[in-house]
């Protein structure tokens, strides 16, 4: 009887330890394998943030978003995170999408002014009205992948 109880307790402890270990080492969200929570155009997404940043943060941040828009330019100046910029209706507002370096080949083939479909994790809107040197504002997506 004692042996069974001891085995049961050991089993429970082992399960708890395994759960803690798996939680502690859980992987980052795999954007490629995950379904997008929202499908939206680059222009609409920027408008949401521009109109009301607080409510847009609640609605979009940390969500995987599928977005389509016109490519303004590629920004490959930071090799740690190649980026592209999508146009919006605002001349001082853009969608800036960051990619893992492994996605570089898929970005290099994109042509300016082409339509781009991609998925990424929305992080919020960067820029500040009080910081006048920064001028424009970007809604940021990270861990993006181009959708064929």
């Amino acid at each position: 009887m004692k042996k069974i109880a001891l085995l049961s307790i050991s089993f429970v402890i082992l399960c708890v330890l395994l759960f803690v270990y798996r939680m502690f080492n859980k992987p980052h969200t795999n954007v490629k394998e995950s379904q997008a929570a929202k499908l939206i155009s680059a222009k609409q997404l920027f408008d949401y943030f521009d109109r009301n940043e607080d409510s847009a943060m609640v609605e979009f941040s940390d969500q995987i978003i599928q977005i389509n828009g016109t490519l303004l330019s590629k920004d490959l100046s930071n090799e740690l995170e190649p980026q592209i910029i999508l146009k919006t209706n605002d001349t001082e507002g853009f969608i800036r999408c960051g990619f893992k370096p492994s996605e570089l080949q898929n970005i290099e083939i994109l042509k300016d002014s082409s339509t781009v479909n991609l998925k990424g994790i929305c992080k919020g809107m960067n820029g500040d009205d009080e910081l006048t040197l920064l001028e424009d504002k970007d809604v940021i997506l990270s861990s993006s992948i181009i959708i064929e």
Partner: peptide, 20 residues
């Protein structure tokens, strides 16, 4: 000489997802 920066807190990437 004025210097400004702005960054998003959510855009800091950690090695471990749980820490993030």
């Amino acid at each position: 000489g004025q210097l400004q920066f702005s960054c998003l807190i959510k855009d800091f990437e950690f090695k471990k997802a749980l820490m993030q």
